[in-house]
Design a protein around this nucleic acid. Structure first.
Lengths: 211, 211, 211, 211
DNA sequence: CATGAATGAGGATTCATTCAT
DNA sequence: CATGAATGAATCCTCATTCAT
């Protein structure tokens, strides 16, 4: 996807190998331990660089954390999904599955948890994450629902509300046990089952009587 | 539980008073700042006792935190709600409203956030909270749904799943903006609106055809 | 002199034994090594306390340094000297001697040097020291000179200027070699000789012709 | 001076150019911030070279600082002043003025302050500066005074002492307020006034009675 | 039991110095 | 020769914990 030519030099500003290496190491540590629990020493070790090097690329712990969150925002934002042309059942299933896969991504630590945890002390980060992750998914679905309503395939008063209802219903029995460490991250199959149930409930509720 | 006579004078009541005082102060600080962000000094100040006294009642910071979480588990666990005899609409509305009021309780800090944040490092606490708070609410609803299904008022395959769907649908547009500091805690009226919508969706989906 | 009753408790605010102990140790280190050269660890060792204890009594390194300078200001400010009733020769000799003894006090490090060194970065401290130490000595002499002029014993246009001229002439060959580590602190006898010469020069210049 | 063509081969001249460039940048930083306060990074930036280059020309921070002080010693040493043939009044005024201009040179930072500050930890530097700066000025005046005494124009017992008295009297109300950041560097006019007063005092004291 | 002074290990950050390019 | 990325020791400061009173 990234078709950037990337000729020229690779300045340290944005894209050096070392910078990525640090971000990768830091992500793991921050997501596992939280902002306060993560120490710069641990991060340096995880990234395979010296403590001093961290400060060559990021002015301080906050800046490094912000960079991580920004990256997560980008990575977890809505992916290019072509649902517009699909029927409601397929569209809902596809969106729900994709969203849940992102939320429960098992690759070490959870961004939702980490950002949620710090949101009281760093409200800007909380807002940024919310705006870039849940809001984009919910918004995409709301838009889709509006076209379906216009086309007469669904009957919904408040599409934003309905979109949120569906997305949250997709979490059902999976997300909380995962986030509270009661169960390991759900498999794609488990997600599929729960998403399917949410889809059926949603359509049963919002499909026009005759259909 | 602890029926030990606790010789000497210093009856348990005296202990308990101070203990409660500490717990109260510590709760605020922990919920506002998180486990790592809270310092024992701050807690002592908030509780109005000396730092040393903290260690008379709790062996260390972890133990104090655990006691707080335990208390929150108890306080936020399901309250005595008599829904068994009610019709589905009333029961769902009442449960949904009560659950959301607990989740979004504005009185300083959020327990969900705080426990979720630490769950990776203290899985036992995460499990305990999950088991005592969401699981009891979801379970209560699941039980109710089962009776309704038996009575023929509802048609549901998996009542545990359906219960979770409903409870999460009640969060819809309210919980995430609150927890990510995008919006202040929702009012009871806002909650009522969203819960009402979830209730109607749920019943539309799970009520038997003829009804 | 300090007639304060000092009953009551000795709060940590101003006068505890530990605070004095820290100030004493810190004075040596700061005066020997300068503000930047002195480390809190070294200070703690010199004071015989732990690093943490330093921060119980002083909020940070700056505050500790300021306290030291303040103390030096007080200790080096003009001492109670009764010169008003004396003839010019005695008065000048006594003041000059006392001032030089303060400036060249050999007890480890020099406050003048240390404060002068930091004055560019902490102008307030520089001003405070100047106002409390040299300015008070110079001012005391200027006042005395004015009474002598009024009494007709001296003829001076600008007494502030003349006072400074005398005080600095007293340094002559002693202060710079001392401060630049060319020679050890001068003895009282050496000071007396140089002060005597300054006195004779001063009087030869400012005594009215006939006398 | 440097008329070398500066082609290719990197002759010493090229080195010297860069070396001078470094010294110039380092001087400003050292004099503004002091030895400890100055960082090699800041110096590199001020000199417009890379940090690594610093170490090509100077083995370490100490060596660079020593080179700076040496240069200051040279620059602030007595300038070629032809006072031998002049009358005492002119000679004193000219010397006093020139010395004070050097001491209070406002072009960023003060060498006296910086060297004085470090003299306890680097006594050699202190001695070097003292020997090259104040001592040369004082010495030059002492020599001059001796010729005047021989010629019968002045009556002075100890010419070294008298020279120091005069030079310090020239500082009077100007130097300390400047060095302690109480007042900005004095203007040439202010210096002239104070030097004039010192000259008159000095001559009034040391001119033979009849004259 | 209650206190708060004292501790020292640990964390974030800076900076002189090195070295591969 | 010139560079600047990388290092790790050292610094300031915080905080959980202990202990004498």
């Amino acid at each position: 996807m990234n078709a950037a030519p990337n000729l020229q030099v690779q300045s340290r500003d944005d894209d050096s190998a070392k910078r990525r290496q640090i971000l990768e190491g830091a992500r793991r540590v921050f997501m596992d331990l939280g902002f306060d629990g993560a120490s710069m020493g641990e991060i340096a070790r995880a990234a395979g660089v010296s403590k001093g090097t961290l400060y060559v690329y990021f002015t301080d712990k906050n800046a490094l954390f912000e960079a991580i969150v920004e990256k997560e925002c980008h990575d977890h934002g809505i992916t290019a999904l072509d649902i517009e042309s699909k029927d409601a059942g397929s569209a809902l299933r596809q969106l729900g599955q994709a969203y849940m896969e992102v939320l429960c991504r098992p690759e070490g630590g959870s961004a939702v948890r980490t950002v949620m945890a710090i949101a009281e002390r760093m409200p800007d980060l909380g807002r940024q994450y919310y705006g870039n992750v849940p809001a984009t998914w919910f918004g995409k679905l709301a838009d889709y629902l509006r076209t379906q309503v216009k086309a007469g395939h669904l009957v919904i008063e408040n599409c934003d509300l309905a979109a949120a209802q569906f997305m949250l219903a997709c979490q059902a029995t999976l997300f909380l046990p995962f986030i509270f460490q009661v169960r390991p991250p759900p498999s794609s199959e488990q997600i599929a089952t729960v998403v399917d149930s949410a889809t059926r409930m949603f359509l049963a509720a919002y499909r026009p009587p005759g259909k």
